[in-house]
């Protein structure tokens, strides 16, 4: 009984932090002023948030299913591999489309 309480606490903590991080990513997507800054929210906060949520589900099913259940790890792995790739492709597409940036951005992009 004691152990299952602690497992539940760990799962609850992982799920809550995960969904809060995903919410922060979406807040960043909504409130930041230009495209390149918006890119930061979903690539980092949302990826980590969903990653930790999935690991919470892994802990939950491992604790009450039959034996260890690790296949949720695959989703986390996949998200962490693909997030930089899609961010890179979107940034390239945005530079190609000459999406505007806010004026105080330092540095410049090279011609596409």
């Amino acid at each position: 009984m004691d152990i299952s309480f602690w497992v539940d606490a760990v799962v609850a903590a992982l799920i809550l932090t995960g969904s809060l991080f995903a919410l922060i990513g979406s807040i960043g997507l909504w409130k930041l002023p230009d495209f390149f800054m918006r890119l930061h929210g979903p690539t980092k906060a949302t990826t980590l948030g969903v990653g930790s949520l999935v690991i919470g589900s892994l802990v939950y099913f491992s604790s009450r299913g039959e034996g260890l259940s690790l296949h949720e790890l695959l989703i986390t792995l996949f998200l962490f591999i693909t997030a930089p790739v899609s961010a890179h492709l979107l940034a390239k597409a945005a530079m190609h489309q000459r999406v505007g940036r806010i004026e105080k951005t330092k540095g410049r992009i090279w011609p596409q």
Binding site: I27, M37, H40, K44, A45, L48, G107
Partner: peptide
């Protein structure tokens, strides 16, 4: 990744005007 996410979360939730974006 975990440490950087705390930073980015604080940056996102903080005031936008303080951010100094750069290439």
């Amino acid at each position: 990744i975990i440490a950087a996410n705390w930073q980015v979360a604080l940056l996102i939730l903080g005031p936008v005007k303080k951010l100094r974006p750069a290439f």
